[in-house]
């Protein structure tokens, strides 16, 4: 198993009128070839921005990568000349966006938009590219692909549109696909179908996948690893089955406890109290401390590093030990600052 993508200590800032927002503040994660990394975290935690930095599609200005390394097959993308970077983009790593309706060009036919992948990266003739576009649409199981290739995005249903997005991403059989909440914009009924399709294609083509999602249910089924983000930082990484059994960060624990579960029916759903911090005003110390049931003085002053909790597991909590080993359901932990 080789490391496909390795993001190390990535920092991304947005210079806006309100000041500098550190949207990504020292993120590190890795994706192994053919495996799935699920990235979790509340809205605004920097999941998409990290993905955009990896793809090289950050809005800049105002966005700027101030530090870090993004290695793809060991080669740093950030120091790569733009021409080479462009050859990687779309062909060897591709992205699936959340809202296919706005992510597809409204005035070009889907056939054209798919064919563009081949004409640009492979120099395929227009006619052959068009045939390949139809093949792709078949592959993602869009009915009557040949007839529909000339249709425009707005003429498709949400699910079909997202299939077009997926087709576009897998067109050149990339080694890495980043799917940014690929099913959030869809009806619940088609979410599973689209997710299954994505998982199936991933297996067939042996692609690495970064799955950005809010849906912890999906994560358990498809992911190998999990990275949990909070306020621009990674707070926990772990193999997927381990994290469900025993989270090593209070934030992860809060997330897990906020999913409805059959075996805990009738009990009140736990919600993490408070709101995530604005990227302009991240609290000192551990960014999660104002909302954390375990927080004490140290948490308000000292920013926790990523502690190695177990082999392949890290947690950015000073008191990960306490979190990991059985304080679950035990009410307010001793020493909690209240």
């Amino acid at each position: 198993m080789s490391t496909l993508l390795e993001v190390t200590d990535l920092h991304v800032e947005f210079r806006t009128r309100d000041g500098i927002a550190k949207a990504v503040d020292g993120v590190s994660y890795a994706v192994q070839a053919g495996q799935t990394l699920a990235v979790l975290g509340e809205s605004g935690s920097g999941k998409s921005v990290t993905a955009q930095a990896v793809m090289g599609i950050l809005d800049s200005p105002p966005g700027r990568i101030t530090a870090g390394r993004i290695a793809f097959h060991g080669q740093d993308l950030l120091t790569m000349p733009e021409r080479e970077r462009r050859a990687v983009r779309g062909a060897r790593m591709a992205m699936i966006f959340q809202d296919a309706l706005s992510a597809l060009n409204p005035v070009l036919s889907v056939g054209h938009q798919l064919a563009e992948m081949f004409t640009t990266h492979r120099g395929t003739s227009r006619k052959d590219a068009r045939a390949k576009a139809v093949e792709l649409m078949d592959r993602v199981r869009i009915p009557a692909a040949r007839q529909r290739a000339g249709d425009f995005p707005h003429q498709f249903s949400g699910g079909m549109r997202q299939r077009v997005m997926i087709a576009m991403a897998i067109a050149l059989e990339p080694e890495l696909v980043i799917a940014d909440e690929p099913t959030t914009a869809l009806d619940v009924t088609v979410q599973a179908q689209v997710m299954d399709l994505l998982a199936e294609l991933q297996r067939e083509m042996d692609m690495g996948l970064i799955l950005i999602t809010h849906d912890l249910g999906v994560v358990a089924d498809v992911a190998d690893h999990i990275a949990v983000m909070y306020a621009g930082r990674i707070v926990e990484t772990a193999p997927v089955h381990r994290i469900y059994a025993a989270p090593a960060h209070p934030y992860t624990k809060g997330l897990l406890e906020s999913i409805p579960r059959l075996d805990r029916k009738g009990r009140e759903l736990y919600a993490i109290k408070g709101l995530p911090p604005s990227p302009h005003h991240v609290p000192p110390g551990c960014a999660f401390n104002p909302r954390c049931p375990l927080a004490r003085d140290r948490c308000r002053t000292e920013q926790p590093p990523l502690y190695e909790v177990a082999a392949g597991r890290t947690s950015a909590c000073h008191y990960w030990h306490e979190c990991l080993h059985g304080t679950r359901d035990s009410g307010t932990p001793e020493g909690a600052g209240r």
Binding site: I57, G90, M95, T120
Partner: peptide, 25 residues
Amino acid sequence: ADYVRTATAKGLPRHTVVVRHLLRN
């Protein structure tokens, strides 16, 4: 617009992104 970002993410050269996707719209 999202579709301009998509066009960039596809690895299209800048002038194609600007002329075919951005300007056309």
